[in-house]
């Protein structure tokens, strides 16, 4: 039995504790896995090279895996609830395509990983703002309008991306763009990720605080309004926070598929609820999935593989499972 609206049940708390324990174990493996071997003894003894690899490469990479998976999953949870669509994700308002176009522009016109990150973030942000601004033109503020605006912005960003690819040097720049789009946690440094992770964390805190209004948004718009919710304003804030969180991660890692779909549905299947505990569990599962996929990306082949290959390998069969399950809601 739960005590308050949206508060987790005992079963959910147990799942969350198990998820957190699994995440800790995987994070420890991730910290020690890679081309340059790290050992606990070496780190404990203060081996300078090992400490440098640990702090500059492994810690930042693992942190982005944990926070990134959490953010993608929570954003997926929020989108599926707000749009009452089990397949919804921040992609529906053009985040991924905006970030891709931004990253491509960064690769072509600027130099350095940080510039690409900033440019990808600016692209994602521009896509979000354009989608929400276009949907605001509808004075009734229907959620369907946001989706339609997102499709238009997605198409626009894809066109921009194609134009940028056409002008790219096929040997070097085009390959970089394609590799970025495939998604990877490789090359993330502590310097480039700081502001993005702080902004992402702030958005996630806001989303957890707004969990109760998010549940009310799952009702029909008229019904939600008659429950006292300023539907248009709250939905705008919620979608902006969810999308900003994703933009922060995508700008660092490139596109990572299926985490936002797989993790929240996995959590709902486990708890049978949509309470705040399930949202937290979804986030933890997202972190587990991304950290695990990143470990596989580093170890499955001699050369490092894009992380999306492994998240998609798990996500695609799960999507088929969801379709055959009969779309029993979110």
């Amino acid at each position: 039995m739960k005590l308050f609206m949206g508060s987790p049940t005992v079963k959910t708390r147990i799942f969350c504790a198990a998820g957190a324990a699994l995440l800790l174990a995987l994070a420890a493996v991730s910290l020690l896995t890679g081309k340059y071997p790290l050992t606990i003894e070496g780190l404990w003894a203060g081996d300078e090279m090992q400490l440098r690899v640990f702090w500059t490469l492994r810690a930042s990479r693992t942190l982005v895996g944990v926070v990134g998976g959490f953010a993608l999953a929570v954003a997926g949870f929020v989108y599926q609830t707000v749009f009452r669509n089990p397949l919804a994700s921040p992609d529906v308002i053009g985040v991924s395509s905006g970030a891709s176009a931004g990253a491509a522009a960064g690769i072509l016109f600027f130099s350095g990983a940080a510039a690409v990150t900033v440019s990808a973030f600016a692209g994602a942000l521009a896509a979000v703002c354009l989608s929400l601004a276009l949907s605001a033109l509808d004075r009734f503020g229907k959620s369907g309008t946001i989706v339609l605006a997102g499709i238009a912005v997605h198409s626009l960003a894809q066109t921009a991306l194609m134009c940028l690819k056409l002008t790219a040097d096929p040997e070097r720049e085009l390959a970089s763009i394609e590799y970025w789009i495939m998604g990877s946690l490789n090359g993330i440094s502590g310097y480039s990720m700081g502001p993005a992770l702080w902004l992402c964390a702030a958005c996630l805190v806001l989303l957890f605080l707004l969990h109760r209004p998010i549940l009310i948004l799952s009702a029909e718009e008229g019904e939600a309004r008659m429950l006292g919710l300023s539907v248009g304003k709250v939905r705008f804030v919620v979608l902006l926070a969810a999308t900003l969180a994703v933009s922060c991660i995508v700008s660092l890692s490139g596109l990572i598929g299926f985490v936002g779909l797989l993790a929240p549905h996995g959590a709902r299947l486990m708890t049978g609820e949509n309470d705040s505990g399930t949202m937290l569990l979804g986030g933890l599962l997202g972190s587990v999935l991304l950290v695990w996929a990143d470990i596989l990306a580093r170890t499955a082949a001699a050369t490092e593989l894009p992380v999306s290959i492994f998240t998609s390998l798990l996500g695609a069969p799960f999507l088929v499972f969801l379709i055959f399950r009969g779309r029993q809601g979110t």
Binding site: R84, S230, E273, N274
Partner: peptide, 29 residues
């Protein structure tokens, strides 16, 4: 909307709630 909902309660023909949520949470809304 908040003032209106404080004074008026509305029961639609059919609720649009289509997510997994407990009866208690629906009433607490």
């Amino acid at each position: 909307p908040r003032q209106l909902a404080g004074l008026c309660s509305y029961i639609p023909q059919r609720s649009g709630i289509s997510i997994d949520i407990s009866a208690l949470d629906v009433v607490l809304m």
